[in-house]
Amino acid sequence: MEANFNLLAYIFLLAAVILSLISLWRPGRLISYMVQASLILSFAYLTLALVLRSIAAGRLPFANLYEFTLLFAWGILLFYLISRRVIKSDLLAALVAILVVIILSYSNTLSSGPGPLMPALQSVWLQFHVITAIIAYGAFGLSFCLAIIYIIKEKGYDSPDVNNLPSLAKLDNLLHWSVAIGFPFMTLVLITGAVWAEEVWGRWWGWDPKETWALITWLIYAAYLHARKTYGWRGKRSAIMAIVGFLAVLFTLFGVSLLLPGAHSYV
């Protein structure tokens, strides 16, 4: 069952990618509606798959990189759906759908057995650590897509969907809003990680590549927020920083796991 729901989530996501690309080319009420419906269905099936997995395993789906990748995709979709209250754009839908399809495709290459929790993960800190990470990364994922849209709009392409976007100032505000939500949660990821590392390994910080890259991500977003606040760095420069920040997120999650060996080897 869980595999079926996962597949459905994936299929609806692919549908959203295709439909949203068509709608950029031939906009219309109906097609926008279909894009939106596909994304909502995809989110719903992904949620169901995660719930079923939790029931089957008798624990929350926090035990390996495969599960965290599903949660990562889930978090980005969640923040996208929340953002629909203030911005409705098929261009944004297309970017989010493409990003999430890539993440889910990658998850299919990972081993996905719902094994039991290994000793290192049997800690209350697992729950705090992972939940804060989902929120932080979901918000950063959305800000990444908003930053790309900002840059597209600023370039001044003349197309219906680009013209329908909110003003540059409003986009910039939205982008700031999603980074400002992600940042305190990223701080909590670092704190809960440190407390947990102290409990499980006996050292709260060890410059393990995963820890180091989490810190680098935090430094980038800290720079974004400060530059904006004190220098009024807005617009393109800050959009680029938000993009770089999310590339650091992706590197922490996937690059480090693949390229840089460390103690934090499960995620």
Partner: peptide, 17 residues
């Protein structure tokens, strides 16, 4: 402050490679 955030990030990444 911004310069330091940036430099610390770059230096820290060097150590991970």
């Amino acid at each position: 402050g911004l310069l330091l955030l940036l430099l610390l990030g770059i230096m820290a990444s060097l150590g991970s490679f």
